[in-house]
């Protein structure tokens, strides 16, 4: 079952091809990993899918709908959320507020905001959910702290929390464990696996293969804007990793 698919995505910046005919498939209920050395176009791919850049050609299909070049806020409405490579939490806001803000809220409309009764019920439910999520991520004891007080790893967890409250179908993460100590990195991924078992699909960009490999279902390798190898399932992944092209790229890195 394919949830998201890109077909021949192309994007150039000043003549440099950052995406060159990139076609990938993200299966439902699976963890799809895109790896590749720095500058190979991984973040550009995520930006293209999530609407942050407009592609030159190609298509993005989500649940059989064409979502190519939509605005980011429209793409969210389909059930796709993303995190950023250099996550900056909303630093001056509390941990709880950082999670709450993930979900659109009728109390955000100026005309509703004035009348507490119009959004109170929604807010109560949302706060309830947010606390459950924070408990799941073991961040609940710090809910009222400003998020700038969190450690780097906790900030990444917070990003996941913010994504979770949207009830997404697909979570896209750009280097979720960059700069995180191995212990905590495994922690983050065990949360990811747990969520996957609950029915959320993941598209993850990461190059610390040593840590993530055992959690991966499908793998794509990118280099210089193109997909140079891919594999579905354990055996094929094994093959991809022994592919001389892939090894060369990684030794060259």
């Amino acid at each position: 079952m394919i949830l998201l698919e890109t077909k021949n995505l192309c994007k150039s910046f000043d003549g440099v091809k950052a995406l060159d005919n990139v076609s990938i498939e993200v299966e439902r209920n699976k963890l799809t990993l895109v790896m590749g050395p720095n500058g190979s176009g991984k973040s550009t791919l995520i930006n293209a899918i999530s609407g942050f850049i407009k592609v030159d050609s190609g298509k993005v299909i989500f649940e059989d709908r064409d979502i190519t070049n939509r605005e980011p806020h429209e793409i969210y409405n389909y059930g796709i959320v993303r995190t950023f490579q250099n996550p900056e939490p909303l630093k001056s806001m509390t941990v709880l507020e950082n999670v709450l803000i993930g979900r659109k809220h009728s109390g955000e409309e100026i005309t509703n905001a004035l009348f507490t009764s119009r959004w109170m019920k929604e807010e109560e439910e949302l706060v309830e959910r947010a606390f459950k999520i924070l408990e799941f991520l073991k961040l609940d004891h710090r809910w009222d702290h400003p998020s700038r007080a969190l450690s780097g790893g906790q900030m990444k967890l917070l990003e996941i929390g913010r994504a979770l409250i949207t009830d997404p179908k697909l979570i896209i993460m750009d280097e979720p464990i960059a700069g995180v100590a191995p212990g905590l990195a495994h922690d983050i991924f065990s949360h990811v696996v747990e969520l996957k078992n609950k029915g959320i699909s993941f598209l993850i960009v990461e190059h610390r293969l040593d840590i993530v490999l055992k959690y991966v279902d499908n793998l794509y390798v990118m280099f210089n804007g193109s997909v140079i190898a891919h594999g579905k399932g354990r055996d094929e992944i094994e093959k991809v990793l022994n592919d001389p092209k892939v090894i060369e790229v990684y030794i060259g890195d």
């Binding site: 900056e88 909303l90 630093k91 001056s92 806001m93 507020e97 709450l100 809220h105 109390g107 955000e108």
Partner: peptide, 16 residues
């Protein structure tokens, strides 16, 4: 209200 919250969110990180 949630309106104030989203305004602050906008101030801190509009991309987010």
């Amino acid at each position: 209200s949630p309106y104030g919250r989203i305004l602050r969110g906008h101030r801190e990180n509009e991309d987010l």
